[in-house]
Write a protein that binds this DNA or RNA. Structure first.
Lengths: 135, 135, 135, 135
DNA sequence: GTGGTCTAGACCACC
DNA sequence: GTGGTCTAGACCACG
């Protein structure tokens, strides 16, 4: 599990951690019952304060993605994969909504927007098809 | 010129005002030389603090979209339409970047994202082609 | 609105604050649209760190009891009274469940438990009937 | 003696073990002089760390419920049944206090609380009268 | 060792 | 002025 934070992003660090765990569970990189890195380990790895990681873990526990095993650490909860796949979709859909709202009120056409998305997609180096993603 | 603010949105109020002026100029609803509402009038109309409107106007002046006519108010500047059309595109591109970043890190494929965009576009009731926009 | 914290209780301070706000809204002491004390004011009043109050407020926002009015403070949200009445009941019911579970596994009879409750009730100086509560 | 731990409960594991021993002695399931399972056996049976069981036994020794028989294990102490019956009552009384405090500060009436208790009691399938308990 | 809570003090964006 | 985020460092209960 490799995490990377963007300290220049307006998205709070703890939220970025939450997202990465959610994505890791959604993609299967983190399976049910797996333990996440300890608060202290992850905080050193990401070079953030331990409180920041703890806050992320607490949020994930509240969302029933992780569950605390007292004295042992945090484990991926039973229903987590489904929850995370849902959340991943919801997250991206939210961004799409924001973008579409702005594009519509700005008077752009669908064609222009789709072209923009494809252009940015290439710049970001994303995969092209679902098959490629799973490869 | 009709403005509508969403106080629940994470987008700052002054930024929402900026966007609306920019879009109004880009679309031609506001022409070069037109006067914007006074800070007082607009703040009463939108039920926000006058400082918030002032900040938006200040921002727009900095971007050379508006220019202060002393004792009279703010007027749409000469090069404004071009600037605003550019900015409109930049704004949307920024949202697209955010969305693509999230989609890529979430492991979605380009196909899935494009489908999402089209779905949201229909939901938002936007135009389909550039021709349709100009019509 | 009078708040009082018990620093000897095992219940976290931020959770105690959450409960008190919930109860205040449930009882109508805090109505929809009312502003809560600012983080800094309340932290001074309760002699706790501002972060502790902020954490409570954030929790309440997540539960849609409060909503942030940016730059102004936190206001009681529209659906809050219903949510709070529900939560109040749920909270007490949870305690009752804990207590009953322990009593049953300890082999006490219902009569003994009811007597215990009445005794503690008098010691705590609570009201006797619903009518008395509203008086 | 059958033990069952709930690892999801907020009650610490060692405390759950303590309670179960106390209740077993109070009810007579464990008589004076009986030996409890060894730390190792019980920790394997409950799938918990041996330290956790040791801590529970230590606590029980401190409360003079068990006494160490060197080289043999822990035995139920002479005065244990009386102590345990007392403690059982104290335990439940503590829960009642918690519950009453919350109910009073939540503005509930005694009637409402008693009704809640009876409802939960039935749900938990407890006995109705002291006579029934002894039967 | 684990996570959870709290304090103190800093900086930020927003109104 | 408002809340939101982050850091640093402390203490605690639990296993």
């Amino acid at each position: 599990m490799r995490f990377a934070l963007d300290t220049t992003s307006p998205v709070p660090l703890y939220e970025q951690i939450v997202h990465q765990v959610v994505f890791a569970v959604a993609s299967g990189d983190l399976g049910v019952g797996d333990m996440t890195p300890s608060v202290r380990d992850l905080s050193q790895q990401l070079i953030v304060n331990a409180n920041t990681v703890a806050r992320a873990y607490q949020e994930l526990e509240r969302e029933q993605v992780l569950e605390a095993r007292r004295g042992l650490g945090m484990a991926v909860a039973a229903g987590a994969p489904e929850i995370c796949r849902d959340r991943r979709k919801t997250l991206v859909r939210g961004r799409v909504e924001d973008m579409v709202r702005e594009a519509v009120s700005g008077g752009l056409s669908l064609d222009e927007v789709l072209a923009l998305v494809e252009a940015e997609w290439r710049k970001a180096g994303g995969a092209n098809s679902a098959a490629e993603v799973r490869a």
